[in-house]
Write a protein that binds this DNA or RNA. Structure first.
Lengths: 198, 198
DNA sequence: GGCCGACTATGACGACGGTCATAGTAGTCC
DNA sequence: GGACTACTATGACCGTCGTCATAGTCGGCC
């Protein structure tokens, strides 16, 4: 796997996110996480004395920060940065993965929300924080691109909602159709918001 | 609970959908389903010889048909039917539930997708069918409302994607904000599609 | 009555999960 | 060297889960 040589703790968080993405929270075992990370089983209780709950929460937090950080990188890489182009890039990350590696994984934050929102309140809070850590950079990017301030956050929420839903449908259908559709349909709406700054 | 007096089999399917909505597929036990439905445990293997997989698939199918059937009823109940009004009504079903009964439940199809898309192919197919059984009536409604035929299905996909994503975020945040936001932001786009039939 | 199918009712089994307890190793500082 | 801390390594416990097996009930039909 050529896991970059971070500490075993970080590797386990990363592996947890990977497995949760694929199988859901409940179906992901602690032993499985340790094995996937190439870490000893005993390290689990050493690094995560809070048990599975803590590990899952950290995996969700990691995923939220990861998604948030990518936004800036997307923006920097765009030759002609517009809101629609940013959204297309966010979507493209998923279509690329699905076409290259199959439809095995979804969004770990979505998985944690579905599996734990009702049963584990600390995880629910972690998912809310993850969505916030993702939405904020998107909204900031929108304002930077010329979207009026009061519309940036609603549009960011819309973008992430549509993306999450399309990921679900794409996995169900094993087809990127839903993803390309939302990118195509939402693009004009997003770019139109730029010109509204009267 | 005043479960309307259908047969025990149907009650178990319904109960399975309810529990999956709340806790996810993996965390929903067969015994729990039987208890919730007020049905004897032995009936499970009698009515669902295919085991949990069959029960989950039927629950997903039921949910898809249920969502599809509601579309027509929404349309009929709207005083001034437009695409935006239809979408607002679809969203309102969720905001009403969340405000009245709390954020306990999500969409059972989303839960099944997250938990089973990778592990259980028959359930993945059931979720794809459920999304199709939901998208088709929405697309049909859009054409009835004047949306050009070639845009009806993409827009229906966009509506359902945004709704599913907003449900996730709303549950995570315990706030209907995301739901009202997508309804508000997507409304103009949907209605604008009507006037495009040149 | 006797039979049979549909359904109910329980107990048991095997597997697996998360967690705990305990012991072992390695490196460091005194 | 010896104590101490960080980390590794396993085995065991106990609960729960899905499933199977077996037996029991009930109603109709010949």
């Amino acid at each position: 796997m050529a896991v970059s040589e971070r500490g075993p703790r970080e590797r386990m968080v990363f592996s947890a996110a990977q497995l949760i993405r694929r199988e859901g929270v409940a179906a992901t075992g602690m032993r499985e996480v340790a094995a996937h990370a190439g870490a000893p089983r005993g390290s689990l209780q050493h690094y995560f004395p809070g048990g599975k709950e803590q590990l899952v929460n950290e995996a969700v937090g990691w995923a939220g920060r990861y998604a948030g950080n990518r936004v800036a990188r997307f923006l920097a890489a765009l030759p002609e940065p517009t809101p629609a182009a940013l959204f297309a890039e966010m979507v493209r990350q998923w279509t690329d993965e699905y076409e290259a590696a199959g439809f095995a994984g979804g969004c770990p934050v979505a998985a944690a929300t579905v599996d734990c929102a009702q049963s584990t309140d600390s995880t629910r809070e972690a998912t809310a924080a993850a969505f916030a850590a993702w939405t904020a950079p998107v909204a900031r990017a929108l304002t930077d691109l010329g979207v009026p301030g009061e519309r940036a956050e609603p549009l960011a929420t819309l973008m992430i909602s549509a993306l999450e839903g399309a990921i679900l449908i794409a996995r169900a259908e094993r087809d990127v159709r839903a993803l390309t559709t939302v990118a195509h349909e939402l693009g004009p709406l997003l770019d139109a918001a730029v010109r509204e700054r009267t």
